[in-house]
């Protein structure tokens, strides 16, 4: 019996030997996890390869860090656990830096930032109701934000809003609109499908991504209301890292600083988004 066990274990090890070796002290290869379903930040092409702004940016950063990049696709709801399990060394998946996430992982300096917006069906009466008479609401400025949030809660009373699971938008709903029905989706695309078919009354997400979702069915849905920033909407998107890899964090911080300074981030951003998303 013992022989069988050791034979099995040996077989199992041989199966994984190829994948072994990684995780050496000196960084030669950095494996980067990304969702691949969040355009324009990241997406998957028809052959299953990861593409998008963050993939191009990561390739640039890796060149600066003198390491080679490997990309790993990972569904959003498991993206932090998989980092902790060591399935990859860094997350670049439009992940906003928040205190809640800082409890479990580290972040690099931000490389992008974006407001969150609502979208509704073009012919929905909600379109008017959500027009709250403000372009931009900074949630840190409580005096100004409070009356707008109250109006928002009133307008969405009895309605349902689709968001992606465990995102800052879900946190926003929990914190500011806890009386509104929230439906959580594994992928933002699916929230778009359900808004399109009328299963939810609105969706809430990162601005560029919501716009990308709307583009798939032109004219059907529109972005409405103010751009939300600050507070739970956070401090911009950064690279997520394990807490025990401070050296890698330093490398990313340096590379991101350079890429912001020499305009690479701006260039890639204009190419993928049509405007500049680099943090101010």
């Amino acid at each position: 019996m013992k022989k069988i066990v050791s034979a099995l274990a040996l077989g199992a090890m041989m199966a994984v030997a190829a994948a072994g070796a990684a995780g050496a002290k000196e960084w030669k290869t950095v494996r980067i996890g990304s969702e691949g379903a969040y355009p324009p930040w990241n997406a998957t092409d028809t052959s299953g390869k990861l593409i998008g702004f963050e993939i191009d940016l990561a390739n640039d950063l890796c060149k600066r860090m003198k390491v080679s990049c490997e990309f790993v696709a990972q569904d959003w709801d498991g993206i932090i656990p998989a980092l902790q399990q060591g399935k990859y060394d860094a997350i670049m998946s439009a992940m906003t830096i928040t205190d809640e996430r800082r409890k479990v992982i580290d972040f690099s300096a931000p490389y992008g930032t974006e407001p969150s917006v609502f979208a509704v069906l073009t012919d929905s009466p909600l379109g008017k109701a959500l027009n709250l008479g403000a372009d931009r609401i900074d949630l840190n400025d409580q005096a100004k934000a409070k009356p707008v949030l109250d109006k928002l809660a009133e307008a969405l009373k009895g309605k349902s809003v689709g968001v992606q699971v465990s995102t800052i938008q879900a946190d926003f709903m929990d914190k500011h609109l806890s009386k509104v029905t929230m439906r959580t989706y594994d992928k933002i695309d699916n929230a778009g499908i359900d808004l399109n078919s009328g299963r939810v009354d609105a969706m809430f997400g990162d601005r560029s991504v919501v716009e990308a979702v709307l583009k798939a069915t032109p004219g059907k849905m529109v972005v409405v209301g103010p751009n939300f920033i600050g507070g739970v909407i956070g401090e911009g998107m950064g690279v997520g890292l394990r807490k025990d890899t401070a050296d890698l964090k330093a490398m990313f911080d340096k590379a991101i600083g350079e890429a912001l300074k020499d305009g690479t981030v701006k260039k890639l951003s204009t190419q993928h988004f049509g405007y500049d998303i680099s943090p101010k």
């Binding site: 274990a9 199992a12 994984v16 994948a19 072994g20 990684a22 995780g23 060591g86 399935k87």
Partner: peptide
């Protein structure tokens, strides 16, 4: 897998794809 490998004297992470 890592702990099994460790029991056989292989240190370092075993990664299953």
């Amino acid at each position: 897998a890592t702990s099994i490998a460790a029991a056989f004297g292989y240190d370092g992470r075993v990664d299953l794809n």
